[in-house]
Design a binder for these strands. Structure first.
Length: 341
DNA sequence: AAGACGGGGGT
DNA sequence: ACCCCAGTCTT
């Protein structure tokens, strides 16, 4: 039974091979880069970022030497910015503590910052053909449907069950091909919505297809209730300079830049007075909305002209530099549409 | 075990 | 406008 599933999977892979950009040299550094970019991110979205990063930092030593702001500028818009921070720290660690040698086993790779079970398996199998099975969202969906397991992987115990099944199915000695095949199959064919069951060579052994349960497998994940947050965001402008500060708090958008921000639904005159800013008659944007997986962000943005304004933690940037500054997406979208005039 | 952490695509 | 998608770290 397992053999049939695997044979069909490999047959599928022959007809839908997907070239990875690191295929030529299988450099674990490049594989790591692409896998980290792909966490919680579709491949099509990650690829342009991958190309810019590899182009700019073809060797791990160059990534280690980069400034965090430069890295964030290249990461801007992709989200989950702690990935960029971990990437940077790990590049520095490998360069200085391991003489640039990327670890070569799952056990060592998973010790790296920002690398969990999925990414460690992917790197160990793609770069070194170690017999470790990946378990990502695609693999979970495929196994849930084909083997009729109506469970999410939110509980550790259930995740272990899927991981054990994935390990059993793994074709030893061909973990790179097998892992690639099952993820490709999940992302291009056994999709979350409208899977292509009519043209699937696995459907004959697929529990969900045979029992008309494709629509209900895997079961939906429990989602956290969204919290609403409101921000008033002001760019202070003096001639051609804009004052910005880097968000250092343990909060959303850590490491990104912002103007003067009051987090509140209503304008607090006292707050703006302490910032020495007169916001009377300011032209605010409408409420701009950005939905994150756990928060609903509402933001009003305005520009205020103020000569000789200064405040601790704020730094002046010439308006021409701002395209290389990482802002939250909702802010950069507003900048693209509005500009600073 | 539960919550925090961005953003994009399909319908 | 609404619904769905997806790994790692921290608490």
């Amino acid at each position: 039974m397992f053999k049939t599933f695997q044979d069909n999977l490999l047959a599928f892979y022959q007809s839908f091979p997907i070239e990875k950009p690191w295929q030529a040299d299988r450099d674990p550094y490049k594989i790591w880069l692409l896998e980290v970019l792909s966490q919680q991110t579709r491949m099509e979205q990650a690829l342009p970022y991958y190309r810019r990063l590899v182009d700019r930092f073809p060797k791990i030593e160059l990534l280690a030497d980069a400034s965090e702001d430069d890295l964030f500028a290249l990461w801007k818009g992709l989200g989950y910015y702690s990935r960029a921070r971990n990437l940077h720290n790990t590049a520095k660690y490998i360069t200085s503590e391991r003489e640039g040698q990327f670890p070569r086993t799952y056990a060592d790779i998973i010790k790296l910052n920002g690398v969990g079970p999925y990414t460690a398996s992917a790197i160990a199998s793609f770069a070194f053909r170690e017999d470790v099975a990946v378990l990502d969202g695609n693999v979970h969906r495929v196994l849930s449907r084909v083997f009729g397991i109506a469970k999410t992987i939110q509980r550790g115990q259930d995740k272990d069950e899927f991981q054990n099944l994935a390990n059993k199915l793994l074709i030893k000695g061909q973990s790179d091909i097998y892992n690639q095949a099952i993820m490709n199959f999940g992302s291009t064919h056994c999709k979350p919505q409208n899977p292509n069951c009519g043209d699937c060579n696995i459907s004959e052994i697929c529990y969900a297809y045979q029992n008309e349960k494709v629509g209900v497998l895997p079961p939906p994940k429990l989602r956290p209730i969204l919290r609403d947050r409101y921000f008033h965001f002001v760019f202070v402008k003096s001639k051609d300079n804009i004052y910005l500060r880097k968000r250092m708090e343990k909060d959303i958008w850590q490491g990104l830049y912002e103007g003067v921000v009051q987090e509140n639904k209503d304008l607090d005159v006292d707050f703006w007075q302490t910032q020495k800013l007169d916001i009377a008659g300011l032209l605010w944007s409408p409420w701009l909305k950005q939905v994150l997986s756990h928060q609903r962000i509402w933001m009003k943005i305005a520009i205020i002209e103020s000569e000789n304004w200064s405040s601790t933690n704020f730094q002046a940037f010439h308006t021409s530099e701002l395209k290389n500054i990482a802002f939250p997406r909702v802010v950069s979208k507003w900048i693209e549409a509005h500009g600073f005039d």
